[in-house]
C-alpha cells in the first residue's frame, strides 16, 4: 500500500517534472544549445502566478496562462538578443551565456522580490480524494492534469500545425528548412519562447503545493536534466516519460532512504544513464 501510494505521488509529481523539462529538450532539439537557465524561467512563471494570485485574486491554475504568455514573450526576446549571437559560437561560450543568464535572472529576482518564500492559499490546498486506501492530493492532481494538458497542447502544435512542422524541419535540417522558405530564426525564437513559456506554466500550476523564492529553480535543475537525459535529449515525449520516471524514483526511494538522500539516488540514476544509455531510454523522434 505504501508503495502504491509512493507510485501515485511519484506519477503526479513526475508528470509536472516532465512537462517543465520539455522546453529544455525542445530548445536543444531545435537549436542545439543546452539552456542552463531553463529552471530560472520556471521561477519567473511561479512569480507571475504568485503576483496574479496576490493582486488579481487569480488561482495559480489560471494564472498559469498569464505566466505562459509573459514568459513566452520574454523568452522570444532573450533568444533574439542574447542566444542568437552565440548559436555559432563555441560550446564554452554558450555555456557561459546560459549559466550567466541563470545567475542574472536569480539575482534580479532577489533584488526585485526579496529572498522571502511566498505561497498562495487555495480552497483545495489541503484536500484530497481517497481511492481505497490511496490518497490523491488535489493540488498534485490538478497540477498534473494542467501540466499534461499543456504538454499535449505543445505536442499537438508540433505535430499537427504548419508552424510546428516548420519547427521540426528546422530541428532536423536547418539548411533544407531555409530552402523550403522557412525563417529558421523565427523558429528559434518561437521554440525558445514556447519552451520557457511551458516551464513557466508548469511552475505556476505547482504553486498551490510549493513556495516560490528566487532560487527555487536550483531545486529543479537536477530533476530537469535527469528527466531529459532519461528521455533522450531532444525528444518531447521522452522528456515527459523521463520526468515521470524521475518523480517515481524520487518518491519510491524516499521509502527506503532518508529524505536527504533523495537527490543522491537521482544522481546515481543520472550517471548510470549517461554511462549506459547516453541517448536516453526512449528512442529520439521528431523535435
Amino acid at each position: 500500500m505504501q508503495l502504491l501510494q509512493a507510485l501515485v505521488d511519484g506519477l503526479l509529481i513526475g508528470g509536472v517534472y516532465g512537462v517543465v523539462s520539455i522546453g529544455l529538450s525542445l530548445v536543444f532539439g531545435v537549436m542545439n544549445i543546452v539552456n542552463f537557465a531553463h529552471a530560472a524561467f520556471l521561477m519567473l512563471g511561479m512569480f507571475v502566478a504568485w503576483f496574479a494570485w496576490a493582486f488579481l485574486g487569480l488561482d495559480p491554475l489560471l494564472g498559469a496562462f498569464l505566466s505562459f504568455v509573459l514568459v513566452f514573450a520574454f523568452g522570444c526576446a532573450v533568444q533574439q538578443v542574447l542566444v542568437r549571437p552565440i548559436l555559432a559560437a563555441p560550446q564554452v561560450a554558450q555555456i557561459f551565456l546560459t549559466v550567466g543568464l541563470l545567475i542574472v535572472l536569480e539575482n534580479a529576482a532577489l533584488m526585485a522580490f526579496g529572498a522571502d518564500f511566498r505561497s498562495v492559499q487555495t480552497p483545495y490546498q489541503t484536500s484530497a480524494f481517497r481511492l481505497g486506501g490511496i490518497i490523491v492530493s488535489k493540488p498534485y492532481l490538478y497540477a498534473f492534469a494542467m501540466a499534461l494538458l499543456s504538454g499535449a497542447a505543445v505536442w499537438a502544435f508540433l505535430e499537427r500545425t504548419a508552424v510546428g512542422r516548420a519547427m521540426r524541419a528546422t530541428a532536423q535540417d536547418p539548411m533544407a528548412a531555409t530552402l523550403m522558405g522557412i525563417d529558421t530564426q523565427r523558429m528559434h525564437r518561437l521554440a525558445f519562447g514556447v519552451g520557457v513559456g511551458l516551464t513557466a506554466f508548469g511552475g505556476a500550476v505547482i504553486l498551490p503545493y510549493l513556495t516560490v523564492s528566487p532560487t527555487v529553480g536550483s531545486h529543479y535543475v537536477v530533476l530537469m536534466f535527469t528527466a531529459v537525459v532519461l528521455g533522450g535529449l531532444g525528444s518531447v515525449a521522452g522528456a515527459v516519460v523521463g520526468g515521470i520516471a524521475v518523480g517515481v524514483i524520487q518518491s519510491v526511494s524516499a521509502l527506503v532512504f532518508p529524505i536527504q538522500l533523495q537527490n543522491l539516488v537521482l544522481f546515481v540514476v543520472f550517471i548510470l544513464v549517461l554511462a549506459l544509455r547516453p541517448d536516453g531510454i526512449v528512442r529520439r523522434r521528431g523535435a
Binding site: M175, A176, L179, G286
Partner: peptide, 12 residues
C-alpha cells in the same frame, strides 16, 4: 533548390 546530398527531413 534540391541540394546536393538530398537533405530530406529524416524524421518526417
Amino acid at each position: 533548390h534540391v541540394p546536393e546530398g538530398r537533405h530530406v527531413f529524416p524524421e518526417m
